[in-house]
Design a protein around this nucleic acid. Structure first.
Length: 422
RNA sequence: GGAGAGGUGGCUGAGUGGCUGAAAGCGCUCCCCUGCUAAGGGAGUUUACGUGGAAACACGUAACGAGGGUUCGAAUCCCUCCCUCUCCGCCA
């Protein structure tokens, strides 16, 4: 969420920024300012009344101690009215405060000036490309390869769980495990701390990173215990430091975390869901940063470079998109998507997005750091996939297939797999 | 899951109705003293919000696991929930 005083000082900017992100209900900016005004008036009122009643209570205490019961009784009678008034105001204050935050939570993060203004994915900028996408006609789509080798079992996945929950078998399972190790090792070498996180999160955590109230439908729910299955490791890892004050000299903090991710993907059916393109459960290695505000945009570039270099080492052609305002999402202020070339399908597959959230998540989470001068400030959070496994698997299988249908092992994975072919 | 104990500031740990945002100790910061070192003295040291202020800061309110309640007044009493520990049960 945004800082209310920032909204107060920059109403027009927040409104245009909302429109740029395709959020049409600009009226809520004015609404939140009105609510805030109302809220502050009430706070002032109730604080004054409480102050008076605190004073009275002290007087009563003093009188009682002095044995002057009657005088005390008099004051008690006088204050009983004020007490009711306080209760009333507290009641409305609670509602108003609630409405105020609800509105605040509906205002999206403001995009960085360097972000192109645009409505749809058409308006995303190609930030860079690497490698030469193969156009070989003979290349098969990964699902054909997997089927031929019997390395994936969708049918039994349906039997055991449902659509979108396949079994990975033999070499495919090994390949995925090798990739996970490779990604984590690369991150370790780049200074990330490896961390393993819970796969379920509670409501506060979901709110902290912005999954609710915006995107609750994407998550699987475990109602009996009030948990959500994580849609990405971003949620538990970012919430790791929720409600904390981190000392300045401990920053930056960077974590790498491998988890499965669960997404309901409600309403997404069609051709792009074939094979490994879109699943309800998939593995991902996630990179999460906590940095000082002044460092966050440098950090975003380093994060992007790290992720790109993973694909370079795997020798998989990719392109990097700078997402436009309309396509980048509620919580981000700037975001890159990295898409790997899938030569069997002849299309780009998104395998990572690297985002700067600035203080948007951290403010919700009360995640601060203490500066040397002792005052505290909300810090900035970033994250990026490094990388999402199934689509990397898809691109890799297609890119490393031979004409006779075998799959070569990429050079950097040989230490993990100890062979030439899968 | 059952029984019991407990949750207080960066840490340890007092505190069973008012003088406690919180004793004491430790830690930390600043200052003084000390010709090095050890030691000593003094001051400070939670957070959020509101109001005023350019700021320093001042004032007010709230917070002693969370949420309700009793009371003129609650860290202290009552209720619900969460969490931790010990024992039992159950298990990777």
């Amino acid at each position: 969420m945004l800082d209310i005083s920032f909204i107060r000082d920059n109403q027009a900017l927040v409104e245009t920024s909302m429109l740029n992100k395709g959020e049409k209900e600009v009226g809520i900016v004015a609404d939140v300012l009105n609510k805030d005004e109302e809220w502050r008036t009430l706070v002032h009122k109730v604080d004054t009344l409480r102050s008076e009643s605190n004073k009275a209570a002290k007087e009563i205490g003093a009188l009682m101690a002095g044995g002057k019961k009657e005088e005390a009784q008099k004051i008690i009678e006088q204050t009983s009215q004020a007490k009711e008034q306080i209760k009333d105001i507290e009641e409305t204050l609670k509602t108003v405060a609630n409405q105020r935050t609800q509105l605040l939570l509906r205002i999206p993060n403001v995009a960085h000036p360097s972000v192109p203004v645009g409505a749809t994915e058409e308006d995303n900028q190609v930030y860079g490309t690497w490698g030469a996408p193969s156009q070989d006609q003979w290349r098969k789509a990964h699902w054909e390869l997997l089927e031929r080798h019997g390395w994936i079992d969708f049918e039994r996945g349906v039997k055991v769980t449902g659509a979108g929950f396949p079994f990975y078998i033999g070499p495919l399972a090994q390949l995925q495990r090798a990739l996970i190790s490779f990604f984590i090792n690369e991150a370790n070498n780049a200074g990330y701390t490896e961390i393993q996180a819970p796969f379920f999160i509670n409501e506060d955590s979901a709110r902290g990173t912005g999954q609710i109230p915006d995107k609750e439908d994407m998550m699987y729910v475990i109602p009996r215990d009030g948990f959500f299955a994580i849609p990405t490791a971003e949620v538990p890892v970012t919430n790791f430091h929720r409600d904390e004050i981190i000392l300045e000299d401990q920053l930056p903090i960077q974590y790498v975390c491998h988890t499965p991710c669960w997404r309901r993907e409600a309403g997404s059916y069609g051709k792009d869901v074939r094979g490994l393109n879109r699943l309800h459960q998939f593995d991902k290695v996630e990179l999460v940063h906590f940095v000082k505000p002044e460092d966050s945009y440098d950090c975003l570039e380093r994060l992007r470079e790290h992720v790109e270099q993973l694909l370079q080492k795997l020798d998989l052609p990719y392109r990097t998109l700078l997402m436009c305002t309309g396509d980048m999402g509620f919580t981000q202020s700037k975001k890159y998507d990295i898409e790997v070339w899938s030569p069997g399908q002849e299309r780009w597959l998104e395998v990572s997005s690297c985002s700067n959230f600035e203080a948007f998540q951290a403010r919700r989470m009360q995640l601060r750091y203490r500066k040397a001068e002792k005052e505290t400030e909300i810090l900035h959070t970033l994250n990026g996939s490094g990388l999402a496994l199934p689509r990397v698997l898809a691109a890799l299988l297609e890119a490393y297939q031979t004409e006779n249908g075998r799959i070569r092992v990429p050079e950097v994975l040989k230490p993990y797999l100890n062979r030439e072919y899968l």
